[in-house]
Design a protein around this nucleic acid. Structure first.
Lengths: 251, 251
DNA sequence: CGGGGTTATTCTCATCCTGAGTTATTCTTA
DNA sequence: TAAGAATAACTCAGGATGAGAATAACCCCG
């Protein structure tokens, strides 16, 4: 039997069938009171002209998570501190043999949560980029299996709001309880009881901490000035902020 | 601009640097009242002689999930109905550039839950295979980044017991409430209140359904015959069966 | 064969959390 | 200045949880 050195010296990677690995990013933000996902229009085949998730090949010496951040930054033009405030997490991997007509391509999907972002600037390999309301997804055909990836990302996002403080990633540095409630209502897609939500947010340790300040003015249609809060230091919410169970999802 | 056909005809996969994709399986079972993970001893370099997760290269036309089941079946010798009762789910993907000395290898990890399984039969490419108690993991150095993968799998398993009926995958077709409680205690690593657990399991809709039968005998050290149950039809537990929050994990 | 130890199952009870509704107060707009 | 709207706080009933105890069935040992 050969030892490790001899083995590696005689090892030929080219002996294996070619496969490739890409990252795709499901980037979510809240704009105009709607949950929106970042899409780019493909300029080159395959699926030229179709809308797709931002993503691309992982570079030879690049870590996957770094690749995901790079692809996101390229499409949004974001960098520096604003980019650091964006939360990234691995979502899942997709590798059905025929998901890409070129060759066997595995995609490692990432999920990104970002506060209200400006209109995206198109990257070099994208014909166009835009934020699309997730409610409009059913009318838009996406490239590859990206519809499935987006659906998985949305379910992950809805679920993560329950037991993590990720909702604070959708709002600015300072926010009101109503801002936070709007995030939950938008992502979950139904209204919440304002009073109960308020009580709950303040009772969960480490979710938010008060700044002592209030908003400059009341709401656009009246109401008192709201107190401002910052994200707290909790990583997990306990007790969790559960969305009402829908009978369909249980069985 | 070329159309899709012309593009694909002129496409050369060999133009890209070689990468490979493997699956690794974190297979968990409960044997002798302990949570155990399936490991194989590597026969060939790299990491020859080290213990590692069962896994291997995804075949050219093979789906990832199929590859995970195949690798698991090869190492355990399991097939047919017993194999169908094993739950598989994708865990996460690992692709740090230097995680494998041979080349850039991405690993897509799967998590498997199985009821009490027999001693594994060694596969063709494994020097040996064994179930190792997870409590013994700290004393055993694993190949590649498999320690991290196992840790992620264990956390996923503990978390999934809370809100899904997966605990029923660790016991046989018919089981007692005490069997189920032992699963939770073993995976979570601390004792539960028998009375409260009993009440909770029976109150969650769709978790279990009674068979009408009882065990043949009482427990080995006494006690009445216990009623037998089957897994119910729920996919999600509501309300969830939460493990007591540990302060460390929250912040 | 009888008693002690063990375990399944059911109850009790105090406490906490949740959903729903109400009230006081502050602020904007007409 | 009055009406409308939103924040924040309070009330109350019902459900869920944690802790402890009671009851009854069953095993093993002496």
């Amino acid at each position: 039997m050969v030892n490790e050195q001899e083995f590696l010296a005689g090892y030929d990677p080219r002996a294996y069938p070619a496969v490739a690995v890409t990252v795709d990013v499901v980037a979510l933000t809240i704009r105009d009171g709607e949950l929106q996902v970042l899409l780019i229009q493909r300029a080159a085949p395959p699926f030229a002209g179709f809308w797709a998730l931002p993503g691309g090949f992982v570079r030879p010496e690049e870590d996957i998570a770094v690749a995901a951040r790079r692809e996101f930054a390229e499409e949004t033009g974001l960098g520096g501190e604003p980019l650091r405030r964006v939360h990234f997490e691995q979502l899942a991997s997709y590798g059905t043999p025929d998901r890409d007509p070129r060759m066997r391509i595995f995609s490692i999907a990432y999920l990104a949560f970002a506060p209200d972002l400006p209109e995206p600037s198109a990257g070099s390999d994208a014909g166009d980029a835009e934020w699309l309301a997730v409610t409009a997804l059913p009318t838009r055909e996406l490239a590859f299996d990206h519809r499935k990836i987006v659906d998985d990302g949305l379910e992950r996002a809805r679920s993560k709001l329950e037991y993590t403080p990720l909702a604070t990633r959708f709002v600015g540095e300072e926010f009101t309880i109503a801002d936070l409630r709007e995030v939950y209502e938008t992502v979950w897609g139904h209204p919440l009881h304002a009073g109960n939500f308020h009580r709950k947010v303040l009772s969960v340790p480490g979710l938010v901490e008060g700044t002592g300040a209030t908003t400059e003015h009341g709401g656009p249609r009246g109401g008192p000035r709201a107190r401002l809060y910052r994200a707290g230091d909790a990583n997990l919410l306990h007790p969790a902020l559960l969305r009402p169970a829908r009978e369909e999802t249980v069985r």
